[in-house]
Write a protein that binds this DNA or RNA. Structure first.
Lengths: 243, 243
DNA sequence: CGTGAACTTGAGGCCCCTCAAGGAGTGTGG
DNA sequence: CCACACTCCTTGAGGGGCCTCAAGTTCACG
């Protein structure tokens, strides 16, 4: 039951910090199970998982918040390897929801055990801090995009950001990637309306920059799209924290 | 020359982590000096400070980025106690500028010494992580505000956020605070134009919510403004990291 | 008193929103 | 096999929020 961590392919990817045997054993012991869910389900908080920490090991999800006026703001897209609810374990606060975008599988961990895991492991602290700084940069980029770019530019920015993150994970293939976000997800990520996202997508296609087909994104001219969307290409973060 | 840290009033404020004598001595030794600058000057990177880490000990500043199309996006307002350039020391990357908003004073530290300071001090690591999570929440709030609120709502949100941060620092006084942001600063923080900020300010005043006078913000009806601006009141973060 | 920066106010226009209806694809039940 | 429902995508029309450009006003400062 606790063996999967040792043979987990995801951890081995060069994007992530490579754990020592000691660390791996410790994580394994704090693992309480594995849960799979269909798309469009709230992962956290949820009846099945509560507000425990978990690691997304397969599938896509997104972090979002709902405003008093009913609208939804998507805060981040979550890819395999990302921790869900870590802030709940470490700071006691979790003021957003996480919903699955595709079928997902998560590893559920024990909150207290995660806190204990970090104690006495300064390397892990340092990696977590680097990862948090990287996320801060991503938020800053997003802020600049939403605040200062037009709709087609924002969409181009989102495309490039996701494209690069998928590529860094090592699951990209040339100039196209799997892209399970619907129009409304893009809209809620970028402060737009669903219908206008659609119009902007045709503009991106007509300009020969990128095409969004059925769950598939093709980038026709990366350099042109980068300059069109004012994209700041981010150098790989070194190693990313993973639980 | 190195004694000021021991008598520094800023560190004693309850908002910040209280350092042990050992930690304080260590910080003192990595201090290379103190610099004062007038408003509207770039603090980092700058000829006088380079890209060294420093702590803002008096005055207001802001973090910003300039886009290829010439526009400016303000990423965050910096208040006394905030570290400048910490990401440069810990991750090697610093892709924004910091400019003074009022006359400021910063304590300049040695980059390498700051890295060494953290090693072997898990409590400081933990505080830094909590502070980074808190900043992540602030960015998420800002993202939701810019993405999903109207101009007057966004401005109300910014007012409340700054008001609360100043109050948490212990330098607020009842229902008004010093507020050195100009129209254009507000605009560049919230993805608006300077002229429209002005129009929105008159709306906030006409609604009896808040008035922005010469470098002074008065909040007339806090509860009404909170509900108008969809503000999520943030519980104090416990203790904030300070160098 | 002249100068420059910031604030204020107006006019016109565009980007994006809202509302609405139709089309395409998919799963379900008869 | 087809009708039906449901979701998502697409396209259109109209309107409003915010932008841009521009001129006038206030204020600090030399």
């Amino acid at each position: 039951m606790n063996s999967p961590c040792l043979t987990c392919d995801l951890r081995r990817k060069p994007l992530f910090e490579q754990l020592t045997d000691d660390e791996l054993t410790d994580i394994m012991h704090s693992r309480s199970g594995q849960v799979s869910m269909p798309p469009k389900q709230d992962i956290a908080p949820s009846p099945r998982i509560g507000d425990a920490v978990c690691t997304l090991i397969a599938g896509w999800a997104f972090k979002y918040r709902r405003l008093p006026n009913g609208s939804r703001q998507i805060l981040d897209i979550l890819l395999p390897g990302e921790a869900i609810g870590l802030e709940k374990a470490l700071t006691g606060i979790m003021d957003h929801h996480v919903q699955s975008l595709t079928p997902v599988t998560v590893c559920v961990l024990d909150n207290g055990a995660v806190q204990d895991h970090l104690i006495g492991r300064p390397t892990r602290y340092r990696t977590l801090i680097r990862t948090l700084f990287a996320k801060e940069r991503r938020y800053e980029n997003r802020l600049a995009a939403i605040g200062r770019l037009t709709a087609p530019q924002r969409i181009g920015y989102l495309m490039l950001e996701i494209f690069d993150r998928v590529r860094d994970l090592g699951i990209g293939n040339g100039s196209w990637v799997h892209f399970p976000l619907q129009r409304q997800h893009i809209a809620d990520s970028l402060g737009l309306s669903g219908t206008h996202v659609n119009r902007s997508l045709t503009e991106l296609r007509d300009r020969g920059l990128a095409t969004l087909g059925s769950n598939m994104l093709v980038i026709h001219n990366r350099d042109a799209l980068i300059s069109f969307a004012c994209y700041t290409t981010s150098e790989p973060t070194g190693c990313q924290f993973i639980l």
